[in-house]
Amino acid sequence: MSNKWLELLNNDDYIGIKKYLKTDGDISEENDAGEGILACAIRARCSFDTLMLLIESGVDIFDFDNEGVSVFDIAITYDNREMVKYLIEHGRDVNQTSRKSGFTPLMAAACYGRAEIAKILVENGVNQNATDAKGFSAADFARKMNKKSVLKVLKYDENAPKNTSYAR
């Protein structure tokens, strides 16, 4: 990704981005990890207006990087509730994962303690019992990371059998 894009995104320069898009800003650029412009903008904590400018300019809202980390995953990681809601409203399946490990959006919310995002996912029909390639659920991740606020959202039963085979 060009230094110009990085500078504009890191400064959340809406006007600069708008001008760059009209001249020689390539909306399909990626960084070394394969992250697109929108993912980088979310990571840089750009305003929702800037994110919408990029979306209206044609970035792929369903994009993911070389590891399978999607724009949706990054919005969850960076606690961007507005973008999470937007993506769901525009067809993002809350149960879909593009990661080989099977790590789901709800698992990401659990790991990062994103209780409000976990609520949004639950309200939109997320499968709370989905497991990753190693058999861990979102509740397992929330328990391991001590994210009690997420466990409440998941209505976790303290007496449920626990998956104790965590890698150390």
Rank of each mutant, 00 (worst) to 15 (best):
T77A: 06
E89S: 14
I15F: 11
L38P: 00
I55T: 05
A109I: 02
A75V: 01
I76F: 01
S98I: 07
P105V: 12
L8M: 07
L51S: 03
G36T: 07
N95D: 04
K147L: 04
Y112P: 00
A160S: 15
P161V: 11
G25H: 10
F48L: 10
N127Q: 12
S70W: 02
E35F: 08
A39N: 05
K85P: 00
L51P: 04
A33E: 15
N127I: 14
D13F: 06
A130E: 12
L54I: 15
D140N: 08
P105Y: 14
G113Y: 01
E35R: 02
A75S: 09
E123Q: 13
E89D: 11
M107H: 02
R92A: 10
A110T: 07
D60T: 04
D24M: 12
M83L: 15
D63F: 03
D63P: 01
Y14N: 10
A110Y: 00
G68D: 04
L51C: 13
G16E: 03
E7I: 11
D157L: 09
A44E: 08
R45K: 15
E158S: 15
F141N: 04
F141I: 15
S149W: 05
D63L: 03
V59S: 02
S57R: 00
F136M: 13
I37Y: 02
F64C: 06
C40T: 10
S2Q: 09
F136A: 12
L38V: 11
A160V: 14
A133W: 01
T104W: 00
F103M: 07
L54N: 01
N124D: 10
A130K: 10
D65Q: 04
G91V: 02
L106H: 06
Y166T: 11
G102W: 04
L51V: 07
A110H: 02
R45I: 13
G113T: 09
K148A: 12
S70A: 09
D13M: 12
N127P: 01
K18S: 13
D132I: 05
I120M: 07
Q128K: 15
M83C: 05
E123G: 12
N124Y: 10
D140V: 14
N163S: 06
S28P: 01
G135K: 10
T104Y: 00
V126I: 13
V59K: 03
F136H: 05
F136Q: 00
V122R: 07
K152D: 14
I17G: 03
N11H: 14
N127F: 08
N31I: 05
A142F: 02
R92C: 11
K134H: 06
G25Q: 02
F103A: 01
Q96T: 08
K152F: 11
T164I: 10
I15A: 10
T23W: 07
A39I: 05
F103N: 01
E67N: 13
K148I: 15
E30F: 08
